[in-house]
Design a protein around this nucleic acid. Sequence first.
DNA 1: AGCCCTTACGAAAACGGTTTCGTGTTAATA
DNA 2: TATTAACACGAAACCGTTTTCGTAAGGGCT
Lengths: 345, 345
Amino acid sequence: MGSFKRKITLKHIARELEVSISTVSKALKNSEEISTETKEKIQAFAKLYNYKPNNIAISLKNKRTKTIGVVIPDIVHHFFTTVFRGIEKYANNRGYNVIVCVSDESFDKEVINMELLANGSIDGFIMSLSAETQQKNDFNHLKEVTEQGIPLVLFDRVTDEVACDKVILNDKKIAYEATKKLLLDNRKRIALLTTESYFNVSEKRNQGYKKALKEYGIDYDKRLTLVLPYKGVDESDVRTFFERQQIDAVLCVNEIFAILAMSVAQKMGYKIPEEIAVIGFTDGLLSQYANPSLTTVAQHGVKMGEIAAEMLINRVEAEMESDEEVYRTEVLQATLIERNSTVNT
Amino acid sequence: MGSFKRKITLKHIARELEVSISTVSKALKNSEEISTETKEKIQAFAKLYNYKPNNIAISLKNKRTKTIGVVIPDIVHHFFTTVFRGIEKYANNRGYNVIVCVSDESFDKEVINMELLANGSIDGFIMSLSAETQQKNDFNHLKEVTEQGIPLVLFDRVTDEVACDKVILNDKKIAYEATKKLLLDNRKRIALLTTESYFNVSEKRNQGYKKALKEYGIDYDKRLTLVLPYKGVDESDVRTFFERQQIDAVLCVNEIFAILAMSVAQKMGYKIPEEIAVIGFTDGLLSQYANPSLTTVAQHGVKMGEIAAEMLINRVEAEMESDEEVYRTEVLQATLIERNSTVNT
DNA sequence: AGCCCTTACGAAAACGGTTTCGTGTTAATA
DNA sequence: TATTAACACGAAACCGTTTTCGTAAGGGCT
């Protein structure tokens, strides 16, 4: 049969009711200009046929799409989905839609996706840098976007090279505190499982770790730091590392490293937390359901997403392009959630 | 200061080069109609000023947005993100963008989101029903969408009430096989941890479970079935259940139930898999990193997403609305991944 | 010289709205 | 009765493209 109720437009209503398109438009907006009688007639008709204005046409007219583009490195990832949830929630409340692109940690995909969206599809970007982008240190695609006047908010994986609003975690401080907690528990040989230093968050966490050590008079021993790839970690690497070094605690820059460390330690016969304490980052399902449950740094992704969305939408709607090129960097306080992979002091 | 490189349009180019807009448009499309000389001039200029056609305008003209709407119940959820990844990957390859809405398991949010997107923003929907929608059994919002001629593909949580393409798992069969595996291992008292039966996937899995039992001459004992809420499970409920029933295996309809069952059983002193074997659904991080690692049903979310996207885009591009109202339901074969929560036979 | 056919381009409509401005009708006022 | 203001509506421009159709200019032909 084909479809019946094809979308109806102003033109259809106008023709049917023998008025002009402008009259219909005004009537539906309840304009004072139109007589009550006509308005009622038009509104009734519109309701009957379930008229809804075409978003695309409105976008074209207003040069506003009411949608924001989110570019993240990975979607199957607790922290990012959590941030996304915050973005989506806040954005929806303010009448915005969210369009997602996944860079897959690839520079090229990031560039392509952004170029695609930057041509009118969205009012602004919220993003977290891909691994490759951080490694290459090439941010021209971001700069181009901002130069075109498209607002941009960076979160978590940010860079100083681009002038825009940012939302980050106080990574250094919380890593410092986590390490301190281990030190207070009289741990002396604290290992650090981290990623390549071009990840600015890892770098910050490393700094916090070192700062705490220093404060407690312990020399940084680089043999206690294990650098792992961000994807596809090999368990045996962790095992070798644990065999070579004597260790009584581990600080990990993410959840997977933590669970892995714990698992390997357990297989080697260590008791957790008695013999080896473990602290991770990201309070995901893994941390909650691990055995023992993981002490971890909660990154408050939802909150971060909400803030990012708020900053972006405010920027978008401050249209008068107030030339207020004063960008803010919002720093969120992470919190340490103590569970059973560390002893409770 | 403000921004320099504001987006340039055909009109700008036309004015600058003193030609008409149509000439510019044609030149940029390399039309034969335009002289080589003029084309080169225009193309050079366009390149110099980094001209990119405005997506919104093109969408309005073509009545095609090249974006698809995805509505899922939850984003912080391994299976859904996995499907999303498949959708995104396939869609991007065919030049489509993806806009996501999360229904949060709420009927109202699902309706609102769909209405918002159905007004021209997208070319078609891919979705999985929210819990509430399944419970209410109200699918008018879906029907309206399809009646408007907007293609729709349902995945995983589907319904017979709506005529459209679907992608599902052979839930019954795989649950049957999982149960059979436990039975072959000589387990006699197999518990089932499931959700309310209005979740059609749970219902199917329950059926598979029962079928296997029957086949092995074991009467279905409803006391061995524990129905849990889909969100916010209370660990003590599981414990009480385990205390009341003697059990030697558990089949769980999702990963969280499985990890929980395992954790409670361990706390009660049971050895896994020797005394109690556990099988879950969804091969996520939890299953992989659990201790012992979880035998689980891999749902092949990426594949499912790809298929859904393919079906949708084909439908969208078959424009001639060939009236071919022949809808397909693609059934994916799930596979059982055997790990250490069951004994290897 | 007159005709016709290319060639190379422009005008205008269309997509579906919003909005400014103009105008015919009626009623109130001088 | 003539002037004017209020009222109710329509015409048209505009957002940025695409595309159809029309046409001026120029060349080749008889």
